[in-house]
Design a protein around this nucleic acid. Structure first.
Lengths: 147, 147
DNA sequence: TATTGTTATACTCTATAACTATA
DNA sequence: TATAGTTATAGAGTATAACAATA
């Protein structure tokens, strides 16, 4: 029997979704940062993707899709705009709102990030297997929908 | 066909583990806080449990088990000690180290938190099904182990 | 009245680097 | 030399409340 010197017991923690989620999420975060070599945080990737998929959206809609308060999106968009990746244009019909678009540089930057992320996802699929990866995604989705 | 007014497309995000993990984890965090009525953050629950399961452990061991830097554990233990839930005692053989223990109040507080959390876990099991819950736990564990 | 984006502010969580006292 | 705990510090990420402009 192998000696597990200094490894502590998780106790009931091992079977708790919240604990497992926290560990998994921080692992995913680190893996993302390594994969993109620190060029962007996960939050930028998320917002860039949502804007590309829904060009012309207003900020509040993007915030909702990212599960962020609209005020939390402001500094993120400020950064992305300063980097020249996103544009806040005038909304056509609502003068309160902004319409969000990726710039050409934003499209290019997102493509580059996506290549790195896809590679990472592929590694996970190979290690975990396609079926388990799919069921993990479904389970996470259904879990989130409970609240 | 139902109208999905204002719901944005996730695009490739829907199939990305990192994104799904982030949403799920923040949902779990909110659910925990609601279940315990804000009496303790998830971090306290984690540390209390680890200390109870491994009484007499030194701080660095607990930090490792919680996937935290040892310096990040210090303020958490300070809080738990101020609340009278945890004790830093002298280590028997190593005068640099502390040996951590739950106080009686700590045992009681943890039991109360556990009741709330178990109720929450049960709800998840009922909604998701026992099998999917088990496989979700296993998948998260194996996912984390990849990095 | 309600919504949009913004500001001001604050809080939580976490890490890094440097320090001390031991080992 | 290396480890244990601490300190000082800083950064990321997020939320709440209040505000002006507009719907």
């Amino acid at each position: 029997m192998k000696k597990t010197a200094g490894i502590l017991k998780n106790g009931p923690l091992a079977d708790m979704i919240g604990f497992r989620l926290r560990i998994a999420q921080s692992a995913a975060e680190r893996a993302f940062m390594a994969a993109v070599q620190g060029t962007a945080p996960t939050g930028h990737f998320t917002i860039l993707t949502l804007v590309r998929e829904n060009p012309g959206s207003r900020q509040s809609a993007i915030a909702r899709a990212a599960h962020l308060d609209r005020s939390s999106l402001v500094p993120v968009l400020d950064q992305l705009e300063n980097l020249g990746l996103v544009e806040r244009r005038k909304h056509k019909t609502d003068r309160r709102a902004h319409a969000l678009y990726l710039t050409d540089a934003g499209q290019a930057a997102l493509k580059k990030l996506e290549r790195a992320v896809m590679k990472l996802e592929k590694q996970v699929r190979e290690a975990l297997g396609g079926n388990r990866t799919e069921s993990l995604l479904r389970d996470l989705e259904d879990f989130s929908a409970l609240f």
